[in-house]
Each structure stands twice: as C-alpha cells, then as structure tokens.
Measured scan of single mutants.
Amino acid sequence: CHSECLGNCSQPDDPTKCVACRNFYLDGRCVETCPPPYYHFQDWRCVNFSFCQDLHHKCKNSRRQGCHQYVIHNNKCIPECPSGYTMNSSNLLCTPCLGPCPKVCHLLEGEKTIDSVTSAQELRGCTVINGSLIINIRGGNNLAAELEANLGLIEEISGYLKIRRSYALVSLSFFRKLRLIRGETLEIGNYSFYALDNQNLRQLWDWSKHNLTITQGKLFFHYNPKLCLSEIHKMEEVSGTKGRQERNDIALKTNGDQASCENELLKFSYIRTSFDKILLRWEPYWPPDFRDLLGFMLFYKEAPYQNVTEFDGQDACGSNSWTVVDIDPPLRSNDPKSQNHPGWLMRGLKPWTQYAIFVKTLVTFSDERRTYGAKSDIIYVQTDATNPSVPLDPISVSNSSSQIILKWKPPSDPNGNITHYLVFWERQAEDSELFELDYCLKGLKLPSRTWSPPFESEDSQKHNQSEYEDSAGECCSCPKTDSQILKELEESSFRKTFEDYLHNVVFVPRKT
C-alpha cells in the first residue's frame, strides 16, 4: 500500500485506493498535508475557505447554543480562536489581540433580562453583547459592586439597553466600559436606550469621564423622579442622539420631579488639616426662599486615587461607600458681607490618608415646582503625618564578641513616609551569675543571650482551647457569634421535631 494509506488498500502504491488515510483526505486521495488554498479540518480532512465560511455563517444565523462559528488559524479551520487571539470578521482569520481579548457573548432569543446578581454573573467577562440587555433589578445585597464585577467589562451592545423598574439602582456607572450601543435591534418605538419607572436612579454616568455613542435609535425617559433633566440632556449631547427624540420621548413632568437638581456650584473657602482632623468651610448658599434650606450634607471617604465619582458603590438597598454628615444651616444675616460661612470639623480620621470630599445642599421643593440647590466639586484632601507606631517583631542576635545583629519589621501604621529608623542602645553591667558559677561542674549549661522565638506554653494553649472559665478566673470563653447562636437554635429545633416524629412513629394507638 501507499505510504499515506492506513489499515489496508485495494490497489498497491495508489493513494486513492486506501481504506483510511494516515494524515489527511483531499478529493478522494490521501495526502501528507493540505496544500494551499485548503485548510486542515478536524485533523483528517482538507477543506477550502468557502466550506469553513459556510459553517461560520450557519452557526451565526441559527443562534443555536453550542454550535461553533468556525475560524481560520495556522492553516486550520477550527471552532474558535485560541487564547490571546480574536477573529477578523472580513476573512475569519485569528489575529493577536492588542491588550485583553474581546469576548463576544451571543444571547438566546436576542435579549437577556438581568433581574438578579445570579443572572448578571452569566455575563461575567463579556466585552461584546450580541443582542439586547434588559435591566430589571428590584433589590439585593452589595448590588453596585456585584454588577460592576460582572457587567463592568461590557464595551458594546449590538441591540438596545433597557432599564425598567430597577428600584435598587442609583447610577449606571457599573457599566464602566460601555462605549457603544449599535441599535441594530430596537425596542418598540425605535428606541435604543429605554429608561422607565426607576424610582431611585439619580445618575446615568459621570459624563466628564465617560463617552457613549448610540449609532441608531432614540432615547426614552419616563417616570424617573430623581433623575434630573440636565442629566438626560447631557446624554443626548454626548451620545449623538440630540435631535432624534420626539416631543413625548422625554417626559418633562415625570423626570426629576422629586430630585434636588443642583444648578449652582458650592466653593470651599477654608481648608485646614491635622493628622486626624480636617476643618472645612464653604461659601454660604440661600435659595430664593431661605426657609427652603434644610441644611447641608457632607460626604467623605478614603480615596487612594483621584478618580472618585459621587455615586460609586451606591445602591438604593443601603450600600453606600460614603460617610454622610448632616449639618444645620448657619444663622442668616441681613448683611451679605457678614454672612457666616458654614463648615464642619471632621474628626477621627487616619493620618497621612487622602480623602475625597464634597458637600451639597438639602432643600425642600418650592411652590413653583422649581428645584434649587448647590453642590461642590469633589475635592481631595490629605491629612498630615504623625509619629508612626512601633516597629514590629524586633530580633537581636550576637554573632561574635563585638557585634549584635538587630532586625525588625516595619510598623503596622507608618502614618507617613518613613525615611529612617533611630536605634538606641545602652551598655549593661555583666551578670554576677557568670562569676559565681563553678565551671568545672559536669552538665553545666552556660547562660545564653542568643534570641529564641517566643512560644506559647501548654497552660496558655489549654486556656485558649477551654470553653469555660478556669477556677483562677484568668480566662473566659469568647462570646458566641450570631451565626453560632442561630445554628444552635436550628439544631435544637431539629432535635425537638425529630423526637416528636419518633414518638408518633414508635407509639401507635392500640386498636379498641
């Protein structure tokens, strides 16, 4: 048989008469490798580009789960590009990614509803959504962080984005990388972005840091009482949809009607710091009717980097990364020049730590249904340095008659930039024990000054392991946590139920 035959053949030295091919099969003959313009397919066939392209389009058009959109890589027609490569849609070739590779997620039936953290986790790592997304989240724990972890990498949506009755959302900033909504599939009414009845939605994105392009379709905003109209108009300008909307697409009466839409800028007039305090004062603000001013709200939190936005980490279910302080308005003076500047002394802060701070007014709604208010920009203030805590785990070892090696770990709280350490030492008198000992005694162990690591005695271990207080009263049991108490109650309830079950099964009433 021919060298490319495997198993047997019907005619000697003829690659077209093989029972099976050793390498690849091409047009009725066995070959060692697939010549151009053919590609290896499933490690035994040679196919042309049209064959591989037909497989790709067949799966793409069917949208069946589990099928493969075949691509070409290293002269092979394979189910998908290997790690580190992405497909070129024009020629199906796998090309190296520039940075992290995109991950295209194809949605069944063309859309997916995100109504819980669990459903959001199914899209973790996706960068391109081939379909439409509907966000409908009523509640949950730590929602802002969970949504950002699972949806934060999405850069492109081919269909539309719909935010509907998501009472738990305060902001859409968890879509931190969303840059493009194509609108290839539109919501009824030709809408590519749809926001309806979101009672706590206050911000779409921080438009000073976020760009969003909507290729096709219109915007729809109705019944978002805490979303200011200025935020919607800003989205029109940034996304390129200005002029597409009709009169009733953006409701003037049901958007922002319960919001404090600040239209003035508060400026800080005085800032002073110490290692654990920050004193702030800002310019006074009074609405047209000074009785509408209820006070100020001061927001602050630790910020290692200057990239904080107002609604980071917030949701309507209680999660809030900001510390909020309510401040009463100052006494009002008739003389504008003698107006008191409101302020606040922030206490209990960490030394040498940068804080993000902003302040906003708290006002009631005027009778004319106009909203007044003022808010400052987010500023960054760093507390002063102070003395560091003591170095940890000092170790001293003498390696000769004239040297001592000293080692330690950095302090747990540096409280500033540590530039150097101060080492103090003092000579001590020799131990009298060394002169009084009889060095001729056998088995004498000389006193040693070398360091030995501390260890816990058996008594201390027994005390720590004991669940009861000892007789001397030195140790006591740790208080039980809520989960331990709940577990004990469940076990007790189970024992009672099981005992009742045994009584009912074992003891049967005697027939009379």
Rank of each mutant, 00 (worst) to 15 (best):
L229S: 09
I250A: 07
L266W: 01
K162H: 13
L252H: 06
H341A: 11
W207E: 01
N141W: 14
Y194A: 13
I135F: 06
A316F: 13
T254D: 03
N248L: 10
S192D: 01
L204V: 05
G140L: 14
S396L: 15
N130S: 00
S260L: 10
Q339T: 07
G139Y: 04
F268H: 01
L169Y: 04
E146G: 15
L123N: 01
C126R: 00
V128I: 11
S260A: 11
W322G: 02
W286G: 11
S269W: 03
P336K: 04
Q403A: 02
G189K: 03
D367A: 03
C228G: 02
T241I: 09
R138H: 14
G131W: 00
N307M: 03
L229K: 10
R247D: 05
F299C: 03
D377H: 05
I327C: 04
R138W: 02
A195R: 00
L143Q: 15
T118M: 05
S401P: 04
L362S: 06
K103W: 04
F275S: 14
N198W: 00
R369N: 14
G183Y: 02
N136T: 03
S400R: 11
N248C: 13
S269H: 12
Q199Y: 06
A374T: 06
K350M: 11
T118N: 15
E187S: 10
K267R: 11
Q314R: 15
T273H: 11
G125V: 08
L180I: 15
S158K: 10
L298K: 00
L133C: 01
F365P: 15
P388H: 14
L279V: 13
F193W: 04
A120F: 05
V381Q: 14
L107S: 09
G256H: 03
L266Y: 01
T371V: 08
Q203T: 11
N255Q: 09
W286A: 06
N320S: 06
N198T: 02
D289W: 02
M235L: 14
G295Y: 02
P411A: 08
E156Y: 07
K177P: 01
L362A: 07
Q382E: 10
Y305G: 10
F193S: 00
N340E: 15
I232T: 14
L252R: 10
F220A: 07
R164L: 15
E184F: 13
F221T: 06
Q245C: 08
L298D: 00
S166N: 08
K177N: 15
T383L: 02
I129L: 15
S208L: 14
E109S: 14
E236G: 04
I327P: 01
C126Y: 02
Q258L: 13
G183N: 01
G243K: 13
E262F: 10
W282T: 02
I214K: 00
A145W: 03
D315W: 03
L219Q: 02
C261K: 02
T353C: 02
S338Y: 05
D367Q: 10
Q203H: 03
R370A: 14
S132N: 13
E148R: 11
S173P: 02
T254E: 05
A259I: 15
G373T: 08
T353Q: 07
Q203I: 05
S321T: 13
D335F: 13
E187V: 09
C126M: 01
K177Q: 05
S389T: 13
G139K: 10
Q354C: 01
Y160S: 12
T273W: 13
Y372A: 01
S400W: 05
W344R: 08
S338L: 10
V324I: 04
L201M: 02
T273K: 14
Q258D: 08
V128N: 01
V117C: 03
S166P: 01
I278V: 14
T254R: 07
Y194I: 10
W408V: 01
E148L: 06
K375Y: 08
S192V: 09
E246K: 07
S321I: 07
G343N: 15
K267V: 13
S119G: 13
K112V: 07
Y160I: 01
L227K: 00
S402T: 14
K350P: 02
I404S: 03
L143W: 15
L172K: 00
D257H: 09
V390I: 14
L169F: 14
H233T: 14
F220V: 05
L133D: 00
D115L: 02
V397Q: 15
L147K: 00
G131N: 02
A374F: 03
Q216M: 14
L392M: 15
Q216L: 09
F358Y: 09
N334E: 02
S333M: 06
N198P: 00
